[in-house]
Design a protein around this nucleic acid. Structure first.
Lengths: 126, 126
DNA sequence: GATCAATATTCCTTGATGGGAATGTAGTTT
DNA sequence: AAACTACATTCCCATCAAGGAATATTGATC
C-alpha cells in the first residue's frame, strides 16, 4: 500500500474517528455508530472505504460485522508509523477523547437483549 | 490547525513530494519544479494549496518565490509528528529518493544566468 | 518603458468524494 | 416462514479537487 493511499484514508474526519476507536481493538458497527453518534449510512460507507483500501478488515459474527485494523504483523512500516502518529495526535484532541469516552460508556447498551451480551452479543472486544 | 487538515494536505502525491523536498530546507519554485519534473502550473497550484492551509510559507526573493515549512518553533505537535513520520516513510520509497537525488544534481542549473547564482540567484538554501 | 523570467491566476473539464433517503441483504428469533 | 436486527448498497445531489491551456502579474534587465 502506497503512502498516499494511507493519507487518503486519513483525510476525512469521520474516518479518523473510526480509526481512533479501532486502535483500541476490534469493534462492531453498532458500537462505532453509537460512539460517533453518526447516521448508519455514514459509518457503513466510511468503513467500506477503509476496507476497500485494506486499512481495516471485517468479519461477521452473527448479525454483527466486526471491524478491526490489520493485525500488527501484517502492517507495513508506513501504516505502522502513521497509526502510531494518529494515536498520539488523537490523544490530544477533544473530539477523539470524547468518542473514546462514549465508547467506554456503551458497555452493554448495544447488545441485542442487553444483558445477553455474553451469550449472544457480538464478540468485539472493548 | 486541525489534524484532518494536515492529512488533507498530505493526501496528494505531488504535495507529498513537495513536502519531502522542503524537509531539506527552503526552496524556490523552479527548483521544486525541476526536481519533480512536473508542469509549472501543477507545482504552483499545489504550493498555493499548501500555503493557503498554513503548511508552507512563502517569501519573495527577486524574481523567485522561496517556499519553506513553517519554522520548527511554530509547528503544532500534530504537524511536527506528521512531518517526522513523512520523512521516515519517504526515505524508504523510490519516488521520494529520486526527487532528492534530482534536487542534489540541480545545483546551478536553475539560476537565471547559470553561474550567477551567488550574486543574483535566489537564496534558497539547498 | 519594453522585454524577459519566474510565478500566480483564471477558465474549463473531468473525476472523486461526502451525505442522505430509500431499499436491499443476511443472519436470527419466534 | 414471518418478523426483526444489523448492516450494505443504490440512487441522487452537491461540492471539491486535479489537471491543463491560456493569460495575468511582478520584479529584473536592457
Amino acid at each position: 500500500m502506497k503512502l498516499v493511499q494511507i493519507y487518503q484514508c486519513l483525510c476525512d474526519e469521520t474516518r479518523l474517528r473510526l480509526l481512533n476507536l479501532l486502535l483500541r481493538g476490534p469493534l462492531c458497527v453498532c458500537h462505532l455508530q453509537s460512539a460517533l453518534d453518526e447516521p448508519q449510512v455514514k459509518i457503513s460507507k466510511h468503513l467500506g472505504y477503509l476496507k476497500a483500501r485494506g486499512l481495516v478488515t471485517a468479519r461477521r459474527s452473527g448479525n454483527w460485522m466486526i471491524y478491526a485494523l490489520p493485525s500488527e504483523r501484517v502492517r507495513s512500516p508506513e501504516l505502522r508509523a502513521n497509526l502510531a502518529c494518529l494515536q498520539d495526535c488523537a490523544a490530544e484532541s477533544a473530539v477523539f477523547r470524547r468518542d473514546l469516552a462514549r465508547l467506554d460508556k456503551l458497555d452493554l447498551a448495544c447488545a441485542p437483549v442487553g444483558a445477553a451480551r455474553a451469550s449472544k452479543g457480538c464478540d468485539c472486544d472493548w
